[in-house]
Design a protein around this nucleic acid. Structure first.
Length: 307
DNA sequence: CCAGGTCAAGGGAGT
DNA sequence: ACTCCCTTGACCTGG
């Protein structure tokens, strides 16, 4: 079996431990109130400097998929990116990262937090989500990366409000209002709860209406399969991607099954404990394991032919 | 330096 | 009504 194109999310434990590198420097509200955008700018500059090093570390090890942290620009919804005092410096680094990424065939992704709910009945919530999603897109724009789901901004629907079909219609309506910077990159992920959205829900309600691709999350599907087998659901998600773009997927092992029987099934384990079955589909896979890049390297050792 | 408490955001489930 | 869970643990303060 050929090796999979695996990635990991946000934190590189090796570099964090050995060199204090992190792309997550943030602050609490009180500090933001005290120090303001100037401090946001300082943290952002450090974060993007370290992002470049993390990506280089990845490239050296053949890791070509990486999810960036949404905490990279602390409190960005409270201002515009261009208002950061160090914007020029940040821009230069982001451009350089974008060049490196494209030259080396790296795939960068975003997964904005669960607070970005496009289908919320509360206008303020939707407004905030617009802004934040577009800002994620702006960061990718600053890197010079094409506006396609190859560099996806992945979110969940985020709520059902007791009427999934109506909520899906709201989502589709509100999607149309996004700027291209986010609109052309937005992808939607299946949920892990029965009250929320299965792959089939998303395919029928979202993909068929607005054509955005589905991120298949293996563990979420196990928690909330609807009427489909894993192979069927993955196949359906696969169909939602333009044939020129390899679908992105999420994979993690259950903590309950493998590490701690007292935890809940949907909790993510530190490592991957089974060989991933791609059912014959060519996909990119983000590992959502708690042990981050260590889980990826261990997977290679356990299940692939690598040095 | 470290441990413990605290921390923006939405929504759902469990108690 | 409250806590925990997702999510990406990280910040901040008092010792």
């Amino acid at each position: 079996m050929s090796n999979l194109n695996l990635g990991y999310c946000c934190i590189n434990l090796t570099l964090q431990e050995s060199k204090n590198l992190t792309t997550n420097r943030s602050m609490i509200r009180k500090t933001f109130n005290d120090k303001g955008i100037k401090y946001s700018s300082e943290l952002t500059l450090k974060n993007v400097e370290d992002l470049e090093k993390v990506i280089q570390w990845n490239i050296q090890r053949g890791i070509k998929v990486y999810r960036m942290s949404s905490d990279m620009v602390p409190w960005m919804s409270e201002y515009e990116l261009t208002d950061l005092p160090d914007f020029k410096k940040i821009q230069v680094i982001l451009e350089r990262i974008g060049d490196t990424v494209q030259k080396n065939g790296v795939r960068l992704t975003f997964h904005p937090g669960p607070f970005n709910v496009l289908a919320s009945p509360k206008p303020q919530v939707v407004q905030k989500a617009y802004k934040e999603l577009c800002q994620h897109g702006q960061i990718l724009d600053l890197m010079g990366l094409p506006r396609t789901p190859y560099y996806p901004i992945n979110i969940h629907i985020g709520g059902a409000y007791g009427d999934k079909e109506k909520t899906i219609r709201t989502f589709c309506d509100n999607f149309q209002l996004l700027d291209d910077t986010a609109k052309k990159r937005l992808v939607i992920e299946n949920d892990d709860k029965a009250s929320m959205y299965t792959v089939e829900d998303l395919y029928e309600g979202i993909y068929k209406n607005i054509g955005i691709p589905i991120t298949f999350d293996f563990l979420h599907h196990q928690c909330n399969p609807g009427n489909l087998t894993e192979a069927e659901a993955l196949g359906l998600a696969f169909k939602s991607w333009d044939s020129s773009i390899i679908p992105i997927t999420h994979y993690s092992s259950s903590k309950k099954i493998n590490e701690d029987e007292d935890s809940i099934f949907r909790a993510h384990a530190d490592y991957i404990y089974e060989e991933i079955n791609t059912h014959g589909y060519l996909i990119d896979i983000e590992l959502e394991s708690k042990a981050k890049e260590l889980a990826l390297l261990k997977y290679r050792k356990d299940f692939e032919n690598s040095l």
